[in-house]
Each structure stands twice: as C-alpha cells, then as structure tokens.
Write a protein that binds this DNA or RNA. Structure first.
Length: 421
DNA sequence: TCTGGGGTCCTAGGACCC
DNA sequence: TCTGGGGTCCTAGGACCC
C-alpha cells in the first residue's frame, strides 16, 4: 500500500528568525516579502491578531505599532540553510524523500511494516526535527500526496491532534466533510469559484465529483485531484528533480524608475544575476525575455510590455545576456511612465555547452567562460557584487528595500551568533 | 508614500506540413 | 453554395504552487 507523509514547518520564516533570537518566542512576529512589501510568514500570535497572509505592511502599520509586532525583512540565505538541516534530519526516516519546497518535504512510507503505527512515526519525526534543528513542524499522512497534504492541514488546524494526522480509510469521509474545498492542494481562487457554482463546498464534495465533470471544469489537473482524494495516486515522489526549464530575476524597485539610464542599470543587473544562476547550474539558455511595468495598484498611468529574443547561440555569458536584454528593453521602453518593476526571464535551458547553435555562427569563445569564472569566483570569495559590469550601475537607487533584515547568522563570519558561558 | 519572487503544468490557437 | 483531415510545433496566457 502506498503511504506518504508530508512534513511542513510551522510558519517557517518566523521559526528561523526565532532560532537565533529566542526573545521572539511567544511574541507576535511577521516576516516580510522582498522589498518589505507584504507579510509572508506570521507567528501564531500574529495570526491571532488578524494579520492575514500576504497583507501589505502599510495596511497593518498601526496594528504593528500598537501591538509591538516584531517585523523582519526576509533573509533567504538563512532560511535555505535551515531548510537543508530539516531535510537532513528527516532523511533518517525514509531514503525516499522529496524536498518539495523550502519548508515542506514528502516522505515515502510505503515500506512501513503492517503493524507499525504511522502516527507514532509522525510524532517521532516532529520530535527529531525539533530537537536537532529547533524548528516546529506538523506531519500529515495519507495514501496519496494530495491526501497527505490535506492531513497536514488538518493537523495544523486541530491542536488536539498534537501535530500529526493520519487519514485512514475508515475516518476519511468524515474528516473531509469538515474541510473547505479551498484547502485542497491544487484548488485556487478560480477553481474554487467554478466548484462553488456547482455546489461543491467541502473536500468530501470534491472527492465525490464525477471525474469526467472534474475534467471539463478544471482540466486534467482537477481530474487528478479528484482521483487522489479517492486514494488513487496520480503523482509519485519527485526524487530526482529535472534541471530547471526556466530561471528568472525580477524585482520591484525600491522607488519608481523614470529614467532610461536607471532602467538600463536595473535590467543589466538582473541579466547579470540571471547569468550567475545559469552558470552555477551549469546551464545555457536559448531564449531571453525582458519585461517592464508600471505599478498595478496605484493610479499611475499604466504601461506593461515584454520582449523575447532568441539568442543566436545558447550561452550563459553575462555580457551576452546583458546585450540582448538591453536590446529588448530598447524596443519596449516608453518615456514618461513611472516604472515599478522589471525582470529578465531565461527560457530553453540546456546543459552547458550542448545547445544547438546556428550554422555559420562561430562557437562561443573559451575566453568568455574563463572571464565569467573569474568573476564568479571573486564574487563568491569576497561577497556578491565585488566585481560587476559597469553597466549594472554603482548607485543603484532603484534597489530593494530591506529595513528589518536579521544578521546573516549562518553565512557571514561577522554575523555568527556569540554565546557567553 | 508604501502591495514579493520564482517556479511548473495545461490549453487554445496559429502556423505549417503532407 | 460548395472549399479535407490530421498531425506537429510553437507561443501566449491562465491556472496553480510555496
């Protein structure tokens, strides 16, 4: 019998911040998205105050001040390190483990002996991660990934379950009847509307929906979800993730950009950063897109445009990426707008050096990659941004805000926590 | 004043082929 | 008035996820 566990870290970013700053324990804490825009992780105390997922900081400013909510900018280097430690701890329990996202992992428990108690196992997982890494988790267990996800949600929202929920067949329908269909993995806002329109309100309603109907309404994706709710596994663990198909570097600006010169800097900077990511993954790209857009929320005049360009030869040299990104930018730039965001997206990624060039095009020169290697190594050793192309700018007025950043506890010597004893 | 970033998968529709 | 059928490939856009 197939059996999956989903281990999900509780308000992960907040828990990471607490790990190195125990004073935050028991207090309302939120972690903000890039650019200090929205609350993307909230402690239980912050949730209890009514702070919603994704709410912009400026809308809760008064609450934050009056209730002394602790605010942190996001620190992804820290969270990535802690995530790796959680996975290392979990790998004790099954050799088949899928690191699904920064704060969630699926484990295959199919080989569990028949007399073993899945709930006891889940409890042991929680205890191990808490003791070894210091991060609280919840564990959901079920015969498909969709049911394991749902079990996790039930464990998180019912304190009486002590953080572990196993959806066994006898109790399945009764438990699904108590869960809103919007909590099911794969049901977002648009699908929810369509389902509500035909009277599907709970996870149980969705389980009982005719799969053909589900397909008409929600494409093959929804049909699979219905089958998974019925215990038919449509998706196995992804143990060997395929190389990425696309990579992107996009940012909102710290303040609006109106000058072409500044936009050139930003786009060059993103293209260079995208090139670094590509070289790290030992990939080339064949297709580059650049986009710019004005603020979608305020009353500024709207403009949004993108341009995609096929590269003559797939590659990952930052100078080449900058060249084509700027070429694209030139063709979409309109004077007179207040731009809020821009980005560079690389598509058609292939292993480095294997891309098919065009006839009569010279092969990329070896010098190019040697130069990029030197740059990457310097930046790795001395810190990101030590050397860069001049076109990516020196002042960078447009760059991100991060006013509440915690120290780089795990990856900067000067920021290591100090212990007195 | 201030509203994230980075991915995947699926489908529709156009271009093109025989 | 009538104007094939079936296939592939590509891209844009919509939907979802964390």
């Amino acid at each position: 019998m197939p059996l999956f566990a989903l281990v999900d870290c509780n308000n992960f970013y907040v828990s990471c911040e607490r790990l190195f700053d125990p004073k935050l324990e028991g207090r309302a804490v939120i972690v903000l998205s890039n650019n200090d825009g929205c609350a993307v992780s909230r402690s239980a105390e912050a949730k209890a105050m009514g702070i919603k997922m994704g709410v912009p900081l400026f809308k809760i400013k008064d609450l934050v001040a009056s209730q002394q909510v602790v605010v942190r900018s996001s620190n992804y280097a820290l969270y990535g390190d802690i995530s790796a430690r959680v996975d290392a701890a979990l790998s004790q329990f099954s050799p088949r483990i899928e690191n699904y996202s920064i704060d969630e992992s699926f484990l295959d428990l199919s080989d569990l002996p028949l007399d073993a108690d899945p709930v006891a196992l889940g409890t042991a997982m929680r205890a191990t991660v808490l003791q070894w890494v210091g991060i609280p988790t919840c564990v959901g267990i079920g015969p498909t990934k969709t049911l394991a996800k749902l079990a996790n949600h039930i464990a998180k929202t019912n304190p009486s379950m002590k953080g572990v929920c196993h959806l066994r067949a006898e109790r399945l329908d009764a438990m699904l009847a108590a869960v809103n269909v919007k909590e099911v993995w794969g049901i977002g806002g648009s699908y929810l509307e369509r389902l509500n329109a035909i009277g599907v309100q709970t996870a149980l309603d969705l389980k009982r929906l005719d799969p053909v109907r589900a397909r008409e309404l929600l494409t093959v994706v929804g049909q699979r979800t219905v089958q998974e709710l019925n215990g038919i596994a449509c998706s196995d663990l992804d143990l060997h993730p395929k190389p990425k198909q696309a990579t992107a570097v996009t940012r909102s600006f710290g303040k609006p950009v109106t000058a072409y010169r500044e936009m050139e800097e930003a786009v060059s900077f993103y293209a260079a950063r995208a090139g670094e990511k590509l070289r790290k993954a030992r990939q080339d790209c064949g297709y580059i897109s650049v986009f710019i857009r004005t603020n979608v929320f305020n009353k500024d005049p709207k403009y949004s445009a993108s341009r995609s360009i096929r590269l003559p030869v797939p590659g990952n040299d930052s100078r080449m990426l900058i060249h084509y990104a700027l070429h694209g930018l030139e063709s979409i730039w309109r004077e007179g707008y207040r731009y809020a965001k821009a980005g560079v997206i690389l598509n058609e990624l292939v292993p480095e050096g294997t891309g098919q060039g065009q006839l009569f095009q010279p092969a990329p020169s070896g010098q190019s990659s040697a130069m990029m290697q030197v740059m990457d190594q310097l930046n790795k050793r001395m810190g990101r941004g030590t050397v860069y192309q001049a076109v990516t700018g020196i002042k960078r007025d447009w760059s991100l805000r991060a006013e509440y950043r915690s120290p780089h506890y795990t990856n900067r010597w000067t920021d290591l926590p100090k212990v007195r004893c």
